[in-house]
């Protein structure tokens, strides 16, 4: 039970290390880095590799942004498995990510209650 905390920490940390390498070595902006990681998550799921990673690392794999690509791809592929090519399309309209909905909702709430502060 507790080993999942260790794997979550290590795997989550390592995904962030990849992100930092893209920042500092490849000199990419945060936006570019995040897009690359999302696409990577999506491709890994295409090869069926991301779900085992989630089984191994729990939140270490579901919390980094890569899981966003995985969630969308997984939904699309599940539909495609059921309905073939049409499923790829319909799947795209069904899949959602709790990350987006939560970000929209909390973003809206924050805009009501908070103001930006410029202090260090």
């Amino acid at each position: 039970m507790l080993s999942i905390f260790v794997t979550a920490f290590v795997v989550g940390g390592l995904i962030c290390v990849i992100g930092q390498l893209l920042f500092d070595v490849a000199n990419l902006t945060p936006a570019h880095t995040l897009c690359i990681l999302v696409v990577a998550g999506s491709i890994l799921d295409g090869f069926g590799l991301y779900e085992p990673l989630i089984d191994f690392a729990g939140a270490g794999a579901t919390v980094p942004i890569t899981s966003f690509g995985n969630a969308l791809t997984h939904g699309a592929m599940a539909e495609a498995e059921k309905h073939g090519f049409v499923g790829v399309l319909t799947g795209m309209f069904e899949v959602t990510s709790s990350g987006i909905s939560a970000a929209i909702l909390f973003g809206f709430i924050a805009s009501v209650i908070f103001r930006p502060k410029g202090k260090v």
């Binding site: 989550g12 940390g13 995904i15 962030c16 290390v17 990849i18 992100g19 930092q20 893209l22 920042f23 500092d24 945060p30 880095t33 995040l34 990681l37 919390v63 980094p64 942004i65 890569t66 899981s67 966003f68 990350g99 939560a102 970000a103 909390f106 973003g107």
Partner: peptide, 12 residues
Amino acid sequence: GAGSAVPITGFG
């Protein structure tokens, strides 16, 4: 750095 940008909290 990326440690706070890559997790979903960074997206948020």
